[in-house]
Design a protein around this nucleic acid. Sequence first.
DNA 1: TATCTTAATGAAAGTCAATCTCAATCAGCT
DNA 2: AGCTGATTGAGATTGACTTTCATTAAGATA
Lengths: 150, 150
Amino acid sequence: MKVNLNQLKEEFKKYLKRKNMKITQSRLDLIDLLASYGKHFEVEELVNWVSSRTDRRVSRSTIYRTIKLLQEFGAIKEVIKQNNRTIYEFVVGKPHHDHLVCVECGRIIEFVNEDIENLQDEVCKEYDFEPMNHRLEIFGICSDCRRKNI
Amino acid sequence: MKVNLNQLKEEFKKYLKRKNMKITQSRLDLIDLLASYGKHFEVEELVNWVSSRTDRRVSRSTIYRTIKLLQEFGAIKEVIKQNNRTIYEFVVGKPHHDHLVCVECGRIIEFVNEDIENLQDEVCKEYDFEPMNHRLEIFGICSDCRRKNI
DNA sequence: TATCTTAATGAAAGTCAATCTCAATCAGCT
DNA sequence: AGCTGATTGAGATTGACTTTCATTAAGATA
Ligand SMILES: [Mn+2]
Ligand SMILES: [Mn+2]
Ligand SMILES: [Zn+2]
Ligand SMILES: [Zn+2]
């Protein structure tokens, strides 16, 4: 579960070189920032958080561009699409998992279920479909919110 | 699988009365149109299609408002959220199912898997989470597109 | 049926996430 | 240090969706 940040950055540098892209300070900074954020996040939230750490400014444009890049690289995933908001997660060093989303308080519960994963693979085989990624979102009411509502 | 449209409309009328809302021509027309559309759809697509049938004009605003209403009523579901587009489906008379989405050609394959559904319920029990609805989207490449790419 | 009250509608304006544009800057090769 | 092309930031733009508000229609009442 522990991420070797330096190793990750080295891999990212190789990835950038392979794509003839430049290793810039902004890109490396964002990896650091994302690795230390430790929560599911929305881009706008990240923009604010990054600009609050005044050490070095990174523009909104660059943050959007780098998030897309890190998604292709595989360090970040879109985990929830609700209303018209996208919630992301830094997934390096985290095993794959899916999410329960409380529609009342927004709480996000992570779960792992190997059986569901295997069944998905079976379904894909059945339809001769090559899966690349998936998103299972279960929307409902968490225990805390149910207790409050009584 | 066969939907009794009149019965559906009667239920929708009751639903509207319960909510002190009016039974309007636009609302009834949209149920007819949606029931006859027979495909997954995006709102903008529906707006165009509806306005191409010149029998009676319904504005974009009303279409958006009615789609939201029909979602609450349960006749329509958001089935895919990708990029910043939402794909809907008229679900009356259709058993619950999930989707494989080809990221190359946009093809949507529907599948039913009771085992996955049951496992989801188990997960929810485990976390004392009351599920309301869920969305399982598997993104990948369909067989046709894989053949083309060889 | 005519009248009245209130919800629904349409057109246009507004919102908001995300993308694009382009001049200035930076990475990194020589 | 100088060169070349990728990257950046600020602001403009897009596109899906929502809101506003004057007008219209539903449907209850008499
Ligand atoms: Mn997660
Ligand atoms: Mn479907
Ligand atoms: Zn909750
Ligand atoms: Zn395809």
